[in-house]
C-alpha cells in the first residue's frame, strides 16, 4: 500500500518536472527588460557612423570568464547572441564580432593590455565587461575606478565607442562577493566619460525577481546559462541600437 503511493507520487513528480522542462525548452524565454534599464543618455556616434556610412560594424568584446559559457567560440554565449540579434535587426549591415576573453584578470591588468587588443582590429565598438575579478579579489574600489577610467580613455583614443558591462547578478555568492562598490564605480566612470553602461547586474536581478529565471538554481546543466546569455545578447542589441540612435531607416 505504502509503496504504491510512493510510486504514484514519484510518477507524478516526474511528469511535472518533464512538463516543466519541456516548457522551458520550446517557448522562447520570456525575459522582458524594463525600458529604463535599456536607455542611456550617452550615445555611440562611431557605431552610428559605421552603420550609416560603411554598412559594416566591427565589435570587440573584452570580458572575463562570465562572457562565455563553455569556451570562447561559444555560439550560445551573449557575444554571439548579440551578433545574431544585430544581424537580425540590421539586415543590411555586416556585423563582425570578436571576443577577447581575459579570465582572472583585473581591470587594471586588462587596461594595460587594451592597446594591444584593439590594435589591428580597429573596432567601431568595444564592449568591456569587467568588475567580477576585481570584486572577487576585493581590489580597492578607487583603484578599480581609476583602472576602468584609464581603459576607457585608451579605447576612446583608439577611435572606438565603448560600452561598459558590469557584473552578473549572482545570488548564491552574494554573501561572499561585495558587488555594490564595483557596480557604483563603473557607473561613475560611465557618467564621467559619457559612455553607455549596460547594467547586467540590475537586468539579471530583475529577471530573477520577475521569475523569468531562477538564478538560485543549483542546476548542473547548461540550459539555464544558455537562455540567460541569449536574453542578455538580445537586450544588449536593443541597448546598442538605442544608444546609437539607429532608427527604423537604418534597420532596413
Amino acid at each position: 500500500m505504502k509503496s504504491v503511493s510512493w510510486l504514484r507520487f514519484g510518477i507524478a513528480a516526474l511528469a511535472i518536472s518533464l512538463a516543466a522542462s519541456a516548457r522551458a525548452e520550446d517557448a522562447p524565454q520570456n525575459c522582458e527588460v524594463p525600458a529604463y534599464l535599456l536607455t542611456t543618455e550617452s550615445s555611440l556616434p562611431k557605431v552610428a557612423d559605421a552603420v550609416k556610412n560603411a554598412r559594416t560594424l566591427d565589435i570587440l568584446v573584452v570580458g572575463s570568464r562570465s562572457s562565455s559559457i563553455v569556451s570562447t567560440s561559444d555560439a550560445a554565449a551573449y557575444p554571439a547572441r548579440l551578433q545574431a540579434a544585430l544581424k537580425d535587426k540590421l539586415p543590411a549591415v555586416t556585423v563582425n564580432l570578436t571576443v577577447e576573453l581575459q579570465p582572472k584578470k583585473t581591470a587594471e591588468e586588462i587596461a594595460g593590455n587594451l592597446v594591444k587588443l584593439v590594435e589591428g582590429k580597429r573596432p567601431n565598438l568595444v564592449i568591456w565587461q569587467t568588475g567580477t575579478v576585481d570584486a572577487m579579489r576585493s581590489i580597492d574600489p578607487d583603484e578599480f575606478r581609476q583602472a576602468v577610467d584609464d581603459g576607457v580613455a585608451t579605447l576612446q583614443k583608439a577611435g572606438a565607442d565603448v560600452v561598459l558591462m558590469n557584473l552578473q547578478y549572482s545570488p548564491r555568492t552574494e554573501t561572499l562577493i561585495s558587488v555594490p562598490p564595483y557596480v557604483d564605480n563603473m557607473r561613475v566612470v560611465a557618467q564621467q566619460r559619457d559612455i553607455p553602461l549596460f547594467d547586467r547586474f540590475a537586468i539579471m536581478r530583475q529577471w530573477n525577481e520577475q521569475g523569468d529565471f531562477d538564478l538560485f538554481n543549483p542546476t548542473h546543466g547548461v540550459e539555464l546559462a544558455k537562455q540567460v546569455h541569449d536574453c542578455l545578447g538580445r537586450a544588449l542589441s536593443k541597448f546598442i541600437i538605442d544608444a546609437a540612435h539607429l532608427g527604423p531607416a537604418q534597420q532596413n
Binding site: P103, T132, V133, Q168, T173, I177, P218, L224
Partner: peptide, 15 residues
Amino acid sequence: TSFENPLYTEEMGIM
C-alpha cells in the same frame, strides 16, 4: 559542494 551552475563558473571561484 552542491552548486555547479555553469552560468556562475567565474563567481564560484570565490570558494
